[in-house]
Design a protein around this nucleic acid. Structure first.
Lengths: 246, 246
DNA sequence: ATGACGATTATGTATATACATATTGAAACG
DNA sequence: CGTTTCAATATGTATATACATAATCGTCAT
């Protein structure tokens, strides 16, 4: 009953990688249904003629990826799909526009330094008052407005931003590189354009827009809140979901 | 210069877990900037007084998570943030509605078995003709329509679906559990409600809607294409982005 | 029957060791 | 001076081994 040996689909070269992909193939194809018990480590050990540590490495990764569930004394089992989580790629708008083969341009509409009011603090998630920077700008694709950006920057977290004039480059790309690593929360919804938005985006008032709001933290400190408003025709978000395999 | 020993923030108990969280804390806080060289494995070995395998396990995981980059002979380095990828949680609509404290109800509007036409094949990504199931249904939150669902099921992949009447349970929950594991692609956009949609959702024609389209494959076979149409007020998608930590 | 208890078992973590591999830096050479 | 060669080095992978831990099963006493 010795399997493999000749390798089905060598995916990475190392043994534990092959064990991993062999098993995930069985699960993803449905050959091993949810609830099915995966061979014990010592069985795989003889099947692949390797040590338990090698098998363990593969199974641990499968468990972390959420494909299997491991229970002491009982064995490892195929989990049933549950968390419908998808990976949403959020590109820089410049990239997005240039991918369409159009000329990108950014234009600042308004910029204002002020002491944070209650609404600012709510948006940023701040408890104490402090100064913030408010920026409104337009992203163009060719001649057409592509997206309206409304941004609030917490100057306590990024004081250098107070000295910048975001005239022709948006604050987003500027912030990346300055802020080390970040956590972010996105909210996506549809909205009807009000007068001001319709005017800026050159669309009809009441026309549907896609709104993407992002709140960003770095090391627990709120950094920025930004709202992108896209005319419905100009943008589609794409998210992919694949069970495992980093 | 011996650090830790007493443990800063025990996050999981095991040593390699602590090493991992110690280092990721340094990176995420910005203490170790992008490009910074992380101590060599043998240095961490003496710092934590453990074997190289233990250190290696932690660093390998950090590398897989994308926080660091490892180069032979040179060492490991903090990567700069790049791929703005966020995890989008897509819950079952029933869950979504019940989380709002409202009564959930599903009502089928239309169901039709037919031979796939060109549009069906484009939506599902099928090359050959075959029979498909078309279903339209409404999800209610209390008395109000919450979302309109338009679904196409590839009966070659899920023949049993042809015998079902999706009268009071939506096809989504039914498909999960029947289809082993899946890959999915989502498209999210805004749209103005046309007459038919406005009528079904009891909103004004032209009102903004959020549209989520999902294509699903299982073991390379197209399974279903579904379009959820939400009135703008009824739904906000939330996506979170955190650099690492499984 | 039922409950307590200990043996068994599979996984979880860690160790010391070994060799492979890629890359760097320096020495040797033309 | 430029090139080749080689040794040093850090990571990558695998092994055999050890003990910890949790869950299950059978046994035994109540």
């Amino acid at each position: 009953m010795s399997t493999v040996e000749t390798a089905d689909a060598d995916s990475g070269g190392s043994l534990h990688q092959r064990i991993l992909s062999d098993i995930s193939e069985k699960i993803l194809s449905g050959a091993w249904a949810p609830g099915h018990r995966i061979p014990f480590e010592h069985e795989l050990t003889t099947e692949y003629n390797c040590s338990r540590m090698t098998v363990n490495k593969a199974l641990s990764q499968l468990a972390k990826a959420g494909l299997i569930e491991r229970r002491r004394r009982s064995g490892s089992f195929v989990r049933r799909p549950q968390s419908q989580a998808a990976v949403l790629e959020l590109h820089d708008i410049r990239i997005e526009v240039e991918a369409l083969g159009l000329l990108y341009r950014y234009e600042r509409l308004e910029q204002l330094k002020r002491r944070s009011n209650a609404e600012d603090r709510a948006l940023l998630g701040l408890s104490a008052a402090g100064s913030v920077l408010w920026i409104e700008g337009l992203h163009f694709a060719g001649e057409r407005p592509f997206a309206l950006e409304q941004r609030l920057i917490n100057l306590s977290a990024v004081p250098e931003a107070g000295n910048e004039e975001f005239l022709e480059i948006a604050a987003g790309p500027w912030l990346i590189g300055r802020v080390p690593w970040s956590e972010a929360e996105h909210r996506i919804r549809a909205m009807a354009a009000d007068e001001a938005i319709a005017d800026a985006l050159d669309i009809d008032p009441g026309a549907p827009c896609l709104v993407v709001e992002r709140r960003t933290w770095s090391a627990e400190h709120p950094v920025t809140h930004v709202r992108f408003i896209y005319p419905a025709e100009s943008h589609t978000l794409v998210a992919r979901f694949t069970p495992s395999q980093g």
